[in-house]
């Protein structure tokens, strides 16, 4: 009885700000609503029909997938490498860790401002460094043309979120018993095979969870892409969350926007169910 009373505030807030909006989103997606007046009429599944018939939804979905896969891949590779590096004894390790982790905690707004300044075509240091080192002949338009814009957001995404992988992997590395490495050394394993035969198998579980979690979070990323490119040039880097925003507040089509959001969530459900299953298994252990 007391237990139910203690959880009650949580449940009430959940219903108000999550369950109700969720149900409401599905409901709204069946209407044609003009955003400024919030007036609308019931149109059934027409929003979805238009969406799936049109090209923009599929293009945005494809963009979302490209962004998610590329940035996630970089995050994992960089994250694992950096974690292995930081796991070694290096001088001022605590400071090195803080510096590596900081991008993750800094606001996306700050990250974007800094990178847009770095990417600046006239005064940005990146173009200058690359021209100075001979990698580029001409200043590059990092954000205004394709495929540069996609490459840019993928890179910034990797920079901002790879520390998440670092922390997770680092925590796991610290729990691998030294005896495993000693045993492997006695069995004649070299440095590389100690890594592939001892470290990697131990990291498999946590990597799985990290990949799922980051896949979900990258898939729904709005701030970073919206602030970097706004989806441009044209809709070349427009992902699904950006499309929702544009439909709702750019094109004033609230109903169609919710339809995009609901469709996007349906795609995400696959990952979410996988993750929940995974966590369910961990709980049982």
């Amino acid at each position: 009885m007391l237990g139910v009373m203690l959880i009650a505030p949580c449940v009430l807030i959940f219903c108000a700000v999550i369950v109700y909006p969720l149900v409401s989103a599905v409901y709204l997606s069946l209407f044609n609503i003009f955003t400024p007046t919030l007036q609308g009429n019931f149109v059934g599944l027409q929003n979805y029909a238009e969406l799936f018939a049109g090209e923009e939804f599929w293009r945005s979905l494809l963009n979302t997938l490209i962004w998610t896969v590329c940035t996630l891949f970089l995050q994992v590779v960089l994250g694992v490498a950096a974690a292995l590096m930081l796991h070694q004894a290096i001088v001022f390790r605590a400071l090195a860790r803080s510096l590596i982790l900081f991008p993750y905690f800094v606001s996306t707004v700050v990250a974007v401002l800094v990178w847009r300044w770095l990417f600046n075509d006239l005064y940005g240091i990146l173009n200058h460094l690359m021209m100075w080192s001979g990698l580029l002949q001409m200043p590059l338009d990092w954000l205004g043309s394709m495929p540069n814009a996609m490459v840019s957001i993928v890179l910034v995404g990797a920079w901002k979120y790879f520390p998440f992988v670092v922390i997770a992997i680092l925590a796991r590395l610290q729990t691998i018993p030294d005896q495993l490495y000693e045993a492997a050394t006695i069995d004649g394993a070299g440095a590389w095979s100690r890594f592939t035969d001892v470290t990697l198998p131990q990291l498999k579980d946590v990597l799985m969870v990290v990949v799922l979690l980051r896949a979900i979070w990258d898939f729904k990323e709005f701030d970073l892409i919206y602030l970097m490119t706004g989806g441009g040039p044209l809709i070349a880097t427009q992902t699904l969350p950006l499309m929702v925003y544009k439909e709702a507040f750019g094109l004033d089509a609230m109903g169609r926007a919710t339809a995009v959001a609901v469709a996007m969530m349906a795609v995400m459900l696959v990952f979410m169910v996988l993750y929940l299953r995974r966590m369910g298994k961990e709980e049982a252990r």
Binding site: V17, Y20, L22, F219, Y245, T258, V262, M265, M272
Partner: peptide, 16 residues
């Protein structure tokens, strides 16, 4: 809900 995308909730929340 921890995994839920904000963009799904935001329009109904805005109306609310």
């Amino acid at each position: 809900t921890y995994l839920l995308p904000s963009v799904v909730l935001i329009l109904p929340l805005y109306l609310m």
